[in-house]
Design a protein around this nucleic acid. Structure first.
Lengths: 150, 150
DNA sequence: GAATTTGTAACAAAAATAAGTACAATAAAA
DNA sequence: TTTTATTGTACTTATTTTTGTTACAAATTC
């Protein structure tokens, strides 16, 4: 799972720009250029992580579960990449003790390094991401986004 | 490529413990529990990165190209993971400008985060790795390794 | 009840990884 | 110089992972 993070950020960013009105998986799928089910799969992880809320049925869809200033890239990363870690985990293949000790060593270093990465991601919020993208596109008026997003 | 890093570290560590005598891909393959060709593929990357040297023919094999105190985990990482970066690269799929701006944003953050990870890896040398593993196994005498490694 | 919309299972397709086979090229040793 | 050992790599096969689709039940609104 790796493109899931990109999709998650697309969802969170789009939701942020909507200021509270719900978006359907269909809409999100069109703007991202994929299938609604793919979106829902990511959405279900974001939901599990408490980042979004969804409602079924007519008029349903998803909204942010909290303020975008309280959601960091790390949240998105951890929500989506739960299974696959940055560098995977090495499990000893050779039979020898050397192989096992090496695997243990690698895993320790991996965790160190991964944590450094996560701390970088933690320093950026979805609100900041949204703002930077909006600025970059010259969409100073948040509402303008709606007209030109997709 | 990801398991290649583990294999690379196995190779570098084993080579370090050999103090200069060449090891064949067959030998390395047996100790790691894989096919010699798999080893050679990693070896060819390590060679391209200037970390090892190999000789063909009878009595051939590989040795470290420099002192293990001068080889870091980052070297190994960069040698093997040249194509696949930590978090891949997101290329915009939707047609909109938003998608493109988001992709650019994500990529920037990725580079930041990846660099943080690399700096952690840079702080550890193969010599330290070798030493820690030897200590862990209670192989205080380097030469003892030869007898028990595999 | 009719129309939407999510949730998820089941399946299919595609892409990425990894492993294996074969053999030419090279180098040492006999 | 023949034999033997060993790398290098192209080609193939297998495995795993990821992505996309279809289908349909469950929920929710109108």
């Amino acid at each position: 799972m790796n493109s899931q993070l990109a999709i998650a950020l697309h969802i969170l960013g789009f939701l942020t720009s909507q200021k509270g009105s719900a978006l359907t998986s269909d809409r999100l799928a069109v703007t991202y250029g994929t299938n609604p089910v793919v979106i829902r799969r990511v959405l279900s992880k974001l939901k599990a992580a408490g980042l979004v809320e969804t409602r079924r049925g007519a008029g349903g869809g998803s909204v942010l579960a909290r303020d975008p200033t309280q959601i960091t890239l790390r949240h998105a990363y951890e929500a989506t990449a739960s299974t696959v870690k940055v560098l995977g985990r090495h499990n000893a293949q050779g039979e020898g003790r050397i192989a096992a000790a090496l695997a243990a060593f690698i895993n320790e270093r991996y965790e160190d390094a991964e944590e450094a990465l996560l701390q970088k991601l933690e320093a950026v919020t979805i609100a900041e991401m949204d703002e930077q993208i909006r600025r970059q596109l010259g969409l100073l008026d948040p509402a303008a986004c709606l007209d030109r997003c997709d």
